[in-house]
Design a protein around this nucleic acid. Structure first.
Lengths: 220, 220
DNA sequence: TCGTGTGAAGACGTTCACAGCT
DNA sequence: AGCTGTGAACGTCTTCACACGA
């Protein structure tokens, strides 16, 4: 059996996808699913899926497949999805404000409980029901509420500085949308989503297609 | 020397990062740079960087480093950044509207020339200077303007359908923000950015850190 | 001596293929 | 028969380490 301690980021990412698919199956009252069916829905190879599920222990039934509910529950447990994770957001500009209105985080078990901006009075609050505070109040808030996760959506020029403040305040994981490489201590996890570079990547592979060509650059 | 034809998505992504770093060096009138310096700025291993640059031919000077301008130009050429790439955006909701206001695309050489929504009259145009049309007009627009790239920001439920329409209209590359696996022909390149799953990934590695632990799940 | 360019080694990730359970 | 679980093969990406040019 596969060892518990070492699950790669890629596997985690895929487990999240499987979990989402399984929830759809639950909604449709489907009770069992085979690796090939679920793999197709998730867009991966069936063997890949079975390997990934190996990290959860032995859950399938040979000749039959997996119990949807049981599997969903097992993934939820590994991902630590039992309870809502509190998150703060820093930088309520275009993108930050959109993320505050975005309901996708809550669907996956995250709740943005507070937002911070350098100039909170300029923020357009239309459709936002998360309180927006001055960024000066961030450290206290993080300490008091023991927040571990932050979404960073400030301009590139301020990203490193704000990131430092977040780390000092006790934040342990940052999802950054700033087009910069952040320097953080090893104890802090950073994931950077760089919108322009993602588009660039698509563009490159499109350009190459003089004739109809196969390609599929994906999330790693 | 490394063959030209086969550059991986990961390398492309990093080349884009290098390019951005080089532009900053240009602005600061720095003329030469070593692999180790540039690598540090880009957050990668120096050997990695040199390998990546190998795809461009032999550009460095042993004992010295790289000419900033020359290297920047060479990357720009490989990435096809000579001229602005036209892009359309479909789905002007929260996220779509934010992306229309986002200036990061233009900085990297992309121009969103038109947006489309199922209900364009409900779109808040504040701060948006891109025309928003009814999605019915999309196919004509794509055909007339020979657009190859689209950003997809519609709700998950409509993503596949809209994606089909885009492909039928002649779009060859899609950057999708919908939390769904899109089925497209092999000739079309898709890159999916799933915001909630990116956060999930950070969260997982944070949770594991009982003691101060090393981790850094990155963009693949 | 400094720093590139690159073969070779190593780490990591994916897919195959089949034994074994139901 | 059908489908899981998994070693082994394969492929890809990263890092090392060193020859070689400036």
């Amino acid at each position: 059996m596969v060892k518990k301690g070492e699950i790669s980021g890629k596997t985690i990412y895929r487990l999240s996808i499987y979990h989402r698919c399984l929830r759809r199956l639950e909604e449709n009252k489907i009770e069992t699913v085979s690796s090939s069916t679920l793999a197709k829905a998730a867009g991966v190879n069936p063997a890949q899926l079975r390997k990934d599920l190996g990290y959860l222990g032995t859950l399938g039934t040979r000749g039959l497949g997996y119990q949807v509910l049981e599997l969903s529950e097992a993934i939820r447990e590994v991902l630590g999805r039992e309870n809502l994770q509190p998150v703060i957001l820093v930088g309520v500009g275009n993108l930050g404000a959109a993320l505050l209105r975005y309901d996708g985080f809550k669907k996956e078990g995250f709740e943005v409980i507070s937002a911070f901006d350098a100039v909170p009075e300029t923020v357009v609050l239309r459709g936002i029901d998360v309180p927006v505070h001055d960024v000066d109040e961030m450290p206290d808030f993080v300490a008091k509420n023991k927040v571990k996760l932050a979404v960073l959506a400030v301009p590139a020029a301020q990203a490193q500085e704000v990131s430092n403040d977040l780390v000092d305040a006790g934040i342990q994981g940052i999802l950054s949308f700033s087009p910069t490489v952040l320097q953080v201590p090893d104890s802090v996890t950073v994931n950077s989503v760089d919108l322009a570079l993602e588009l660039e990547q698509v563009s490159f592979f499109v350009k190459k297609d003089s004739q109809g060509n196969t390609s599929e650059p994906v999330q790693g």
